[in-house]
Amino acid sequence: MSLCNDDVNKIAHLARLAIDPQDVDQYTQNLSSILDLIAQMNTLDTDQVKPMAHPLDQIQRLRPDLVTEVDQRELFQAIAPQIEAGLYLVPKVIE
């Protein structure tokens, strides 16, 4: 399976990941060889196999619907890049 630079740019956009234009060739080459490695899986016949999501085949545990968290806004926002009046600031979304 071989990717081209356009594929890598498209995937990077989906991942919201800025890739330096001069590095794209290298990523394309690396990702293509990783996908070649992965393609070895296709030699196994898995038509009748049930997919495995969890080693212990556990089901999601439920808990009583009670409030267990306390408000720690100040503690959490102390490490935020930019806040104002208890809100996280980001660039303007709506002009």
């Binding site: 890049p81 660039p91 979304v93």
Partner: peptide, 22 residues
Amino acid sequence: VRYGYRCANPANLADLYTRSRG
């Protein structure tokens, strides 16, 4: 947005995400 690295002078929200991560 909430913690960790943020890029300098993001042009818009998409730029903030992609450049901070990149």
